[in-house]
Structures are given as structure tokens and as C-alpha cells.
Amino acid sequence: MTSFLSVRDLVVHFPTIDGVVKATEGLSYDLERGKTLGIVGESGSGKSVSSAAILGLHRGTNAKVSGEILLEDVDLLTLSDEEMRLRRGRDVAMIFQDPLSAMHPYYTIGNQIAEAYRVHNDVSRKAAKARAVEMLDRVGIPQPDRRVNDYPHQFSGGMRQRAMIAMGLINDPGLLIADEPTTALDVTVQAQILDLLQDLQREFNSAIIIITHDLGVVAEMADDVLVMYAGRAVEFGPCKEILTHPEMPYTWGLLSSVPDVKGDTDARLIPIKGNPPSLLNLPPGCAFEPRCTHSDKVPGNLCRTEVPDLLPGNRGGVHTKRCHLANSDTIYQREILPEIAPELVEDPS
């Protein structure tokens, strides 16, 4: 048996009048039960599109999806629409960024949670509602038997996200995909929600994919990190490894462009120059090359002509990077780290 979830060469293309939008290209990763994968990237990096493909949410649209998505050795892409539908919510569940717009405004919270339960369980309305109350209680909604009859607009942002989590976990799915689950929330509420997700993960032993642009969230939640850029995985590895020894200049950029609550305030932020490329018209070489400040260190014109493969980096092991730079770890420790976190430089020589 391979991993619990194994994504192989996932491709998601959207044909449009202007050409094919290559939203995801050749994405592969594995995830075990009880573990969390953090997918980091900016808007348009393909992090949400590739995860929606796991739920089969592109079915019925004009998207072209290919590759393999093996969930417990079953390729989800080969299932019929009806078979896939029956797995949605039962084997894989998803929670979304903005819980206000992700819930139907005209139905009560209880109705919507119970509905998720009744799709996959042949129970009475009453039993389903009782289960909904139980789940609301589990995710920390006070007075769940009363609040179950409230409408989404009567909940606060944090409570709505709790309710979404209750809805997602009511069928005890093996895989939970959380798409920017805390982006719309305040920090103290974000902390509550992340704690809750971790508690529930321990309890249900589910695998979690957390999609975010916030490296801080990844740092707190993820076991493994996948960095995506322009539809491709550009770096993958264990969370701590990625945060301490990033080898891809894009990841460096993400780390250096965000201030933190402790760093040196006299230092300027070091942004990534320019804008992300259009997915309609990707450069022939490395997609990050136009914004990269290190491509001059690669001999020849390699960065501009050839897409690098996702290969093990300088430190070997499971840490892979999609970059032509030969000694990227050394460059990071010598050039980048002293700029962004001088206190973390291990060996000043």
C-alpha cells in the first residue's frame, strides 16, 4: 500500500478563448493519516485549484484534469461522477476561507450541518439534527442546542468557521482540506481555530491539507510544506527543514518580504520584485526566473531556457526543490539569513 493520499502528476488546465490556463502542472505529493501538509503560495499559484481537484469539484466544468489522485489506493479521477459524489463529504471534506459566503444565507446552521450528515447516513431529520448539535458542541459553540437554529449571519466570524469545521468533520472524513481557513479571521480567533483543528486531528486521526499564504500558519500547523508557484510545486519538505534551510529563491522571498513581531525594524522589507506571471503565458524556463535575483549564479542561460526538475536539494533526503542553483543552501545561509534573521545565523564564518 502506498500513502493514504498520493497525488501523482496532477494537471489541471482550463481552456479559455485566450488560450489554456495551466493552473496546475505535474503536481505530486503524499500525505499520511494524522499528518498535516501545508500548501503555500500566492493567488494563482494553483494551491486551491489542485486541492479542489481532490474533491472532484472541477467535474462538470470545462477543466481538463489528468494524473492520479490515489486516496487509499483508489484513483479518484477514474471514479464515476456518482461514485465521486458519494465520497465527497464522507472521505474528503473541505472548509473554505470565508465562512459567511460559504454558507447558504437562507438556511439555518443546523439545517446545513445536518444535511451534510444525511447525505451519507440514512437517518431521520431529528437524529441528524441531534448529531449537528453534538458536533457544534464539539467545536466549541456555546449553547449548541439553541444556536443550531440560528442563521449564518447571526454567528460571528470565528463561530461560523467553527460551524464549517463541524460540517466538514461530521462524517469523520479521513482527509480534510482547509482552504485559507483563518485568512478572514482576527489573530486571536485564528489561534482558536488552529488549536481546534489540531485537537480534532488528534481525535479523528485525519489527514489535513492546509492551504495558506501565511508561512506563520504553516509553521504552527504543518508537518510537511509544499511551496507552489505558477501552478508548480517549487519546494517540498518537512516544515522545519523548509523554514530553516529553504533552497528555492521564491521561498526566500516569501520569508524575507514579511515582517515579524520581533525583527529589526530599521531593516527594509525585501519584497519579491515584479508580479506573478500569467498562467496563460508562462516563460519557457523557470517560471520564477523573471523575478529571481539569483539566476545570474546559474551558468549559461539555463534558468531562462529550461524548467528545472523537482529534485533533492543540497541537504538531500526528502527535501526537494525546483531550482537550477547548485549551492542554494549555502547562498541562503550566507546571503539571505543574515538579512532577515541575523540572530538565527548558526555559523557566522
Binding site: 474533491l55 469539484l57 459524489r85 458519494l86 465520497r87 465527497r88 463529504g89 464522507r90 471534506a93 473541505m94 473554505f96 470565508d98 459566503s101 460559504a102 454558507m103 447558504h104 444565507p105 437562507y106 446545513q112 444535511e115 451534510a116 447525505v119 451519507h120 464549517m164 460540517m167
Partner: peptide, 23 residues
């Protein structure tokens, strides 16, 4: 967004249409 939620719960297409979209 809430239609995406309805779909990701595994609701049958007819239910998604009549209960969620049409309402």
C-alpha cells in the same frame, strides 16, 4: 461560494439545484 460548499458535502446535483441554487 455556498454552492461549492453544497457540492463538497456530496449533495446530489438535483438537491444542489433545487435546494441551494434556486432558492
Amino acid at each position: 461560494d455556498y454552492l461549492r460548499t453544497a457540492k463538497s458535502k456530496g449533495l446530489a446535483p438535483r438537491k444542489v439545484l433545487f435546494k441551494h441554487t434556486m432558492r
